[in-house]
Amino acid sequence: MHDGVFFEDSGIPVATVISAEFTRAARAQAEALGATDYQTVVVAHPIQPLTRDEVRALADKAFDEIVRRITA
């Protein structure tokens, strides 16, 4: 989250992809830094036991939202 906030501060739009269980942590961390309008892109949890193809499928699903997050 710190990296994302740093990039946004530096004028670079960021899409941070996180798993659903970390939505609250990401929000709390962003708010603690004052980045109240910082938004993440959420994919389903869990990630670690997935196969490569299952992880790739998450990318397909999240792609449009990722593009929306870094474009106007």
């Binding site: 269980e21 970390f22 609250r24 942590a25 709390a28 961390q29 603690a32």
Partner: peptide
Amino acid sequence: GARPGVVSM
């Protein structure tokens, strides 16, 4: 800021 269940996961 390591609040359990919020930032501390």
